[in-house]
Amino acid sequence: MNQFPMTMQGAEALKEELHELKTVKRPRIVNDIAEAREHGDLKENAEYHAAREEQGFCEGRIQEIEGKLGNAQIIDIIKIPNTGKVIFGVTVGLLNIETEEEVTYQIVGDDEADIKNNRISVNSPIARGLIGKEVDSEVEIKTPAGLVEFEIISVEHK
């Protein structure tokens, strides 16, 4: 079975969602189903069918999260000494050499990626181009807009 890298924050977020699903949402849905049953004929009972459908989604999400956590290799970047090398979990500061624009990305697992919050997947072209490189290195990264040259200006373990 393959393990997938995940940051501590990503694992904690999944654990919180799982707890919410099991302790709040699941009991509410069971209650909704019981109430809808009391309304009589189940064939034409929209509330009953909606609650059963919601129950299916909830149980599916619980199984999905449990599977992800079961296959996760949780990496706590704070506990790894900072050598200035880009590895999974770090927050890397980049300078676009052509435009002099600075950008910061945290390299995270596929499920945690969120470009709006500058969290990029370890499997993205940018992250693949950065992994193994060190602070003050210049790297060329193939982007949809073409080849972009960056200088790695910082590597943080936070």
Rank of each mutant, 00 (worst) to 15 (best):
A34N: 12
E35M: 13
A36T: 14
G40C: 11
K43S: 11
E44S: 07
Y48C: 03
Y48A: 05
A50E: 13
A50S: 10
C58P: 12
C58N: 15
G60D: 08
G60F: 08
Q63G: 05
E64Q: 12
I65E: 05
I65M: 06
G70V: 01
N71D: 04
Q73G: 03
I78H: 03
K79I: 00
I80E: 03
I80Y: 05
P81A: 00
N82M: 06
N82T: 03
T83M: 09
K85Y: 03
F88R: 02
F88H: 03
T91A: 12
T91P: 02
V92Q: 04
L94K: 04
L94P: 01
N96T: 01
N96L: 03
N96A: 00
I97S: 05
E102Q: 13
V103P: 02
Q106K: 15
I107K: 11
I107D: 02
G109H: 01
D110K: 14
D111L: 14
D111T: 10
D114K: 11
D114V: 10
K116E: 13
N118G: 06
S121Q: 10
S121Y: 09
V122H: 12
V122Q: 09
N123S: 15
S124T: 11
I126M: 15
A127N: 09
A127P: 08
A127G: 08
A127V: 12
L130F: 11
L130I: 09
I131D: 00
K133Q: 08
E134A: 03
V135M: 07
S137D: 12
V139L: 05
E140I: 00
